[in-house]
Design a protein around this nucleic acid. Structure first.
Length: 414
RNA sequence: AGACAGGUGGCCGAGUGGUCGAAGGCGCACGACUGGAACUCGUGUAGGUGUAACAGCCUCGAGGGUUCGAAUCCCUUCCUGUCUGCCA
């Protein structure tokens, strides 16, 4: 959630920032006035409560002194009645405020390039030259078919469309990649965690998936549980409503989880192959950072993900997302896009974001800064999306006969 | 899943309707004592909101109710422990 006090005190500046993320100024005006309304309503209610409390305390005194309480009681009763509309007003203001506030995206950082959509993202650098083929490279689904690696039909039979089954060496390669990613992250100082694959609504609100994006999530029937769309949710919320000591920072965590997404709104996109599935494996990095250190950690996370691709010999490029392409919670995001020779284009394989204090405010993650509690910064990034890495290996390491080489660094895992 | 017992501050633990945001202890911080330390003694030590700073308001697992007044009484719910059942 954005800082409503900041919005109140720097309204012009704040609305310029949020317009870049597609929030119209009417909504912000409304939010601002609701915030003022809530403060006024609370002030009125609280002073009535203060009066009520102090009168109630007199009862004890009167009784001990044997005084008559009839008059006092009449006064208290009257005050109590007067409080009812104040209470209702404050409650309504609060509900109305949060309904809007929770749906407002994070401010983009000032130096994020301004743009409408992914067309205006900025390529920062390319790493490794794409290999040149002396034959026409195939797309991953064709290779999968040749090698019997992916059983799309049976995935659909078992579940529904956008599910698939990995078989034989593909299944082993998937597992090898997970182990390689986790080991690499661990060596960089990330603690390895194995977390629940279902989280409750409060956690999903903490990281920003709820309430706005419920239609993207798989919900468990009759339970306050959702299948996680990314390990960012459980890892970040590890410290939900906790206060860390300054010495604990940064908290660096990594974990493998499957991720579950309904992919609502991506009808017709990437329906062929394994690029966009309802369930996919991912190894995630999450950092809980001191606000002054989060930029540094962000760079480290980008570098780590890029290094993993380099170690696998996968050509990729580093792309800074423009304001229009930034996710809901992100202040800044860098995507890594891997080269897919079969598709003849770069495709997203990792997304690393700094959410600053946006998730921390929602999830109440703070640290002791001397005597004061301050919100931490939270960061997350894939290192890496496993299925897409598998695809990238298939397409980049294919031979003319359709066979696929295994990258050197993975051999010890297979 | 069923039966019973519980959920109080960083931790342990007292508190069954008012003077309780909460005794006592441990821990921690600061000070005194010491050459230095331990011991001992003294002082302080929850979070949120709010304020220029106070004040005020909210929080004793969570939500609701009774009452002028709730940590304390009632209802719902979640969690933990023990036993039974079931299971990897």
């Amino acid at each position: 959630m954005i800082d409503l006090k900041y919005l109140q005190n720097n309204f012009e500046e704040a609305s310029v920032k949020l317009q870049k993320k597609g929030v119209d100024s009417q909504t912000l005006e409304k939010l601002k006035s609701l915030f003022a309304e809530l403060k006024a309503a609370n002030a009125a209610l609280e002073s009535a409560k203060a009066e009520q409390n102090s009168m109630s305390k007199l009862f004890g005194q009167y009784k001990r002194e044997g005084k008559d309480i009839a008059e006092l009681k009449a006064k208290v009763d009257a005050n109590k009645e007067a409080m009812v509309p104040l209470q209702e007003k404050a409650r309504q203001a609060e509900v109305a405020l949060y309904e809007i506030a929770l749906a407002i995206p994070n401010f983009p950082d000032d130096n994020v390039p301004v743009g409408e959509d992914e067309e205006e993202n900025v390529e920062l650098r390319r790493v490794l030259e794409p290999r040149s083929f002396d034959f026409e490279p195939l797309e991953h689904w064709a290779l999968a078919e040749k090698n019997g690696w992916i059983d799309f039909e049976r995935g659909v039979k078992l579940a529904k469309s956008r599910f698939s089954v990995l078989r034989g060496d593909a299944a082993r390669l998937e597992r090898a990649l997970i182990n390689f990613f986790l080991d690499t992250n661990r060596e960089k100082g990330f603690e390895e965690l194995c977390v629940p694959f279902m989280n409750n609504a409060a956690m999903l609100q903490g990281t920003g998936q709820l309430p706005k994006f419920e239609e993207d999530l798989f919900k468990i029937e009759d339970e306050d549980l959702y299948l996680i769309p990314t390990a960012e949710v459980p890892l970040t919320n590890m410290y939900h409503d906790e206060i860390l000591s300054a010495e604990q920072l940064p908290v660096l965590m990594t974990g493998y989880t499957p991720c579950f997404r309904k992919e609502a709104g991506s009808a017709g996109r990437d329906t062929r192959g394994m690029i966009r599935q309802h369930q996919f494996d991912k190894v995630e990095m999450v950092a809980i950072a001191h606000p002054e250190k989060s930029d540094e950690i962000f760079e480290m996370m980008v570098q780590n993900a890029s290094d993993i691709l380099t170690a696998l010999g996968l050509p990729h490029r580093v792309v800074e997302l423009c304001t229009g392409d930034l996710g809901f919670s992100a202040a800044r995001t860098i995507d890594l896009e891997v080269w897919l020779p079969g598709q003849n284009k770069y495709r997203e394989i990792s997304s690393i974001s700094n959410t600053r204090d946006f998730q921390a405010r929602r999830a109440k993650i703070r640290f002791k800064d001397g005597k004061k509690n301050r919100l931490v910064h939270t960061l997350n990034g894939s290192a890496l999306a496993v299925g897409r890495t598998l695809i990238a290996i298939m397409e980049n390491y294919q031979n003319e006969d359709g066979s696929i080489e295994i990258p050197e660094v993975l051999k010890k895992y297979m």
